Computed example of a mutant assay.
Amino acid sequence: MNDVNRFSDELAAFYDASHEYGGVGDKSFYLDAAMGADGPVLEGACGAGRLYLELLRRGVDADGFDISPAMLDILREKATVEDVEPTVWEADLRSIGADRTYSLAMVPYNSFCNLRGVNDQLAALEALYGVLDSGGRLLFDVYVPRYDTIAESFGEWQEVREVDYEGTQLRGRSRATIADQVKQTYRTEQELVDSDGKVLSRDEFVLSHLPPQQIELLARHSPFDRWSVSGGFDGEPLADGDSVQVWELVK
């Protein structure tokens, strides 16, 4: 992960507005796991607090970290309005910097895909292992790479939605393209444009396709004692046609 994936202030605000009430589908799964945890909870890549702030609202003893200062600024602003006290800091998945251990660590919404090389992926698993109590669990989800999606939508701009940013109506759009076929990475471009079509802010990220065989190999080479995968957030076995793989690794 030589170049970390961050967000500009504008696109962080747009991302937050786009996902706060969106149909990501993971909310109940992670909240139930956190509320049932026998000890503190850590959320990696907590972003602007879509899940993390809900943990605080429900009284969960939770910490969080994210690589994007712009995202954390939004989280802290929301926390101030809601009168809750977050414990969050800037860090990436390979070097967490926590000052205590946890019974549950979770990395939601494809964030593990930001790790583009085997060394980085293993470093993240080792770092997450290191902040867990004995018997602690790591939960994370990543999408299932879909050839039909790549063939049909890669290379085309996708209109996301319109949001109001500091009194100006902006339209967001994104485009995915193959970055490196051998390394199985793809590039996501995100832009905010005004009513005249002028691009006001632009970010570009490179992420990894992570099929389940690769994640299992990573788990086998990690310090974790056991692992399992489900095909979605309902606990059913991973099967052809599933769009999400949900992993549990146990220390």
Rank of each mutant, 00 (worst) to 15 (best):
A79T: 05
F233N: 01
I96Q: 05
S18A: 11
Y165A: 08
T80K: 12
A124S: 14
V24W: 15
S195I: 14
A123V: 05
S103R: 03
L249V: 06
Q190T: 14
Q158C: 10
D16V: 05
Y15R: 05
V160K: 13
I178C: 13
D92L: 06
D83S: 10
N5Q: 13
D63F: 10
S103I: 00
A91Y: 08
G231R: 07
D240K: 11
S243R: 13
Y15H: 12
S95V: 14
V142T: 14
E204C: 15
D148F: 06
G130N: 13
Y15C: 07
N110P: 02
D61S: 07
V244E: 04
T185G: 11
A123E: 11
G197W: 05
L42Y: 04
V142M: 04
V160R: 09
A12I: 12
D242N: 15
D3G: 15
S201Y: 13
D242E: 05
G135Y: 09
G64A: 06
G39S: 02
S28T: 06
P223D: 07
P69F: 02
L11P: 04
G59Q: 08
D120R: 03
E162S: 11
F112W: 02
V193Y: 15
D32R: 10
G47V: 03
A37M: 05
S95R: 12
T188H: 09
F7Y: 15
G22W: 15
A48N: 03
E236K: 12
R137Y: 02
D148H: 09
L132S: 03
A176Y: 13
P145T: 07
A37S: 10
F205D: 03
E77R: 14
E126R: 10
Q190P: 05
N114R: 04
R146I: 05
C46W: 01
L218W: 07
A123Y: 02
S95L: 12
Y102K: 03
L238W: 03
F140S: 00
G231E: 03
M71T: 03
D92A: 10
R175Y: 15
V163W: 13
E10H: 13
F140P: 00
L200H: 02
G49L: 01
M35L: 07
L170I: 11
S222A: 15
T101W: 04
L207Q: 11
E166R: 07
L138Q: 01
T87C: 14
V24T: 09
D32Q: 09
H19G: 01
E189L: 14
L11G: 01
A48L: 04
E216D: 14
V244G: 05
E54N: 09
G197Y: 14
W247T: 00
V84Q: 02
K27S: 11
R171W: 11
L55D: 00
L125R: 03
D9N: 14
